Measured scan of single mutants.
Amino acid sequence: MATVKFKYKGEEKEVDISKIKKVWRVGKMISFTWDEGGGKTGRGAVSEKDAPKELLQMLEKQ
């Protein structure tokens, strides 16, 4: 499965696309949330040019 790689608060992170729940556009950035388990929700953002095609497809479906 595809993953999204991004930096959050200076830390490199990687999230499996299948865990992503919500995707939206903020200017030229793609923001998203995912389920971290245990009732926690993670947040992240990646530039439109660095976003994997699967993430962009999720954005178009909404």
Score class of each variant (00 low, 15 high):
1 M>N: 14
1 M>T: 09
1 M>L: 09
2 A>V: 13
2 A>N: 10
3 T>W: 02
3 T>I: 04
3 T>A: 03
3 T>H: 08
4 V>F: 04
4 V>N: 00
4 V>R: 00
4 V>E: 00
4 V>W: 01
4 V>Y: 01
4 V>G: 00
5 K>V: 06
5 K>T: 05
5 K>P: 01
5 K>I: 06
5 K>Y: 03
6 F>N: 00
7 K>V: 15
7 K>D: 14
7 K>P: 12
8 Y>T: 05
8 Y>A: 03
8 Y>M: 03
8 Y>D: 13
8 Y>G: 01
9 K>L: 08
9 K>P: 01
9 K>R: 08
9 K>H: 06
9 K>C: 15
10 G>T: 02
10 G>Y: 02
10 G>L: 03
10 G>C: 07
11 E>H: 12
11 E>K: 10
12 E>N: 08
12 E>M: 12
13 K>F: 10
13 K>L: 12
13 K>N: 03
13 K>D: 01
13 K>Q: 11
14 E>V: 12
14 E>A: 06
14 E>T: 11
14 E>K: 03
14 E>D: 09
14 E>Q: 04
14 E>P: 00
15 V>I: 14
15 V>R: 01
15 V>S: 01
15 V>T: 03
15 V>D: 00
15 V>F: 01
15 V>H: 01
16 D>S: 09
16 D>I: 06
16 D>V: 09
16 D>C: 08
17 I>S: 03
17 I>A: 04
17 I>Q: 04
17 I>G: 02
17 I>Y: 01
18 S>M: 13
18 S>C: 11
19 K>V: 13
20 I>N: 00
20 I>C: 08
20 I>Q: 00
20 I>F: 05
20 I>G: 00
21 K>R: 11
21 K>A: 15
21 K>S: 10
22 K>D: 03
22 K>L: 10
22 K>C: 15
23 V>T: 05
23 V>P: 03
23 V>Q: 02
23 V>F: 03
23 V>A: 11
23 V>M: 06
24 W>G: 11
24 W>C: 15
24 W>H: 08
24 W>Q: 12
24 W>M: 15
25 R>G: 13
25 R>W: 05
25 R>M: 14
25 R>P: 08
25 R>N: 07
26 V>Q: 12
26 V>K: 13
27 G>F: 01
27 G>C: 13
27 G>H: 07
27 G>W: 02
28 K>Q: 10
28 K>A: 09
28 K>P: 13
28 K>Y: 09
29 M>H: 06
29 M>Q: 13
29 M>W: 06
29 M>D: 15
29 M>V: 13
29 M>N: 14
30 I>D: 00
30 I>S: 00
30 I>E: 00
31 S>R: 07
31 S>L: 04
32 F>T: 01
32 F>K: 00
32 F>Y: 01
32 F>V: 12
33 T>G: 06
33 T>F: 05
33 T>H: 12
33 T>V: 11
33 T>N: 14
33 T>I: 15
33 T>Q: 09
34 W>C: 02
34 W>N: 01
34 W>P: 00
34 W>F: 04
35 D>P: 15
35 D>F: 04
35 D>W: 07
35 D>T: 07
35 D>V: 07
36 E>K: 06
36 E>I: 04
37 G>N: 09
38 G>L: 09
38 G>P: 06
38 G>I: 10
39 G>E: 09
39 G>S: 15
39 G>H: 07
39 G>F: 09
40 K>G: 11
41 T>L: 15
41 T>I: 11
41 T>H: 14
41 T>V: 11
41 T>D: 14
41 T>M: 12
42 G>F: 14
42 G>V: 11
42 G>T: 12
42 G>Y: 12
43 R>M: 03
43 R>Q: 13
43 R>E: 15
43 R>K: 10
44 G>Y: 08
44 G>R: 01
44 G>M: 07
45 A>G: 11
45 A>E: 15
45 A>T: 15
45 A>C: 12
46 V>Y: 01
46 V>M: 12
46 V>S: 04
46 V>N: 03
46 V>G: 01
47 S>H: 14
47 S>I: 12
47 S>D: 13
48 E>S: 04
48 E>A: 05
48 E>H: 04
48 E>P: 10
48 E>V: 08
49 K>Q: 15
49 K>V: 09
49 K>I: 15
49 K>W: 09
50 D>W: 15
50 D>H: 10
50 D>L: 08
50 D>Y: 07
50 D>E: 08
51 A>W: 01
51 A>S: 05
51 A>F: 01
52 P>L: 08
53 K>F: 14
53 K>A: 10
53 K>R: 06
53 K>V: 12
53 K>H: 04
53 K>L: 06
53 K>M: 11
53 K>E: 11
54 E>T: 11
54 E>K: 07
55 L>K: 00
55 L>N: 00
55 L>D: 00
56 L>D: 04
56 L>R: 05
56 L>H: 13
57 Q>R: 07
57 Q>T: 11
57 Q>S: 12
57 Q>F: 08
58 M>L: 10
58 M>E: 07
58 M>H: 04
59 L>R: 01
60 E>C: 15
60 E>W: 02
60 E>M: 04
60 E>A: 02
60 E>F: 02
60 E>K: 03
61 K>D: 13
62 Q>R: 00
62 Q>Y: 02
62 Q>I: 10
62 Q>N: 07
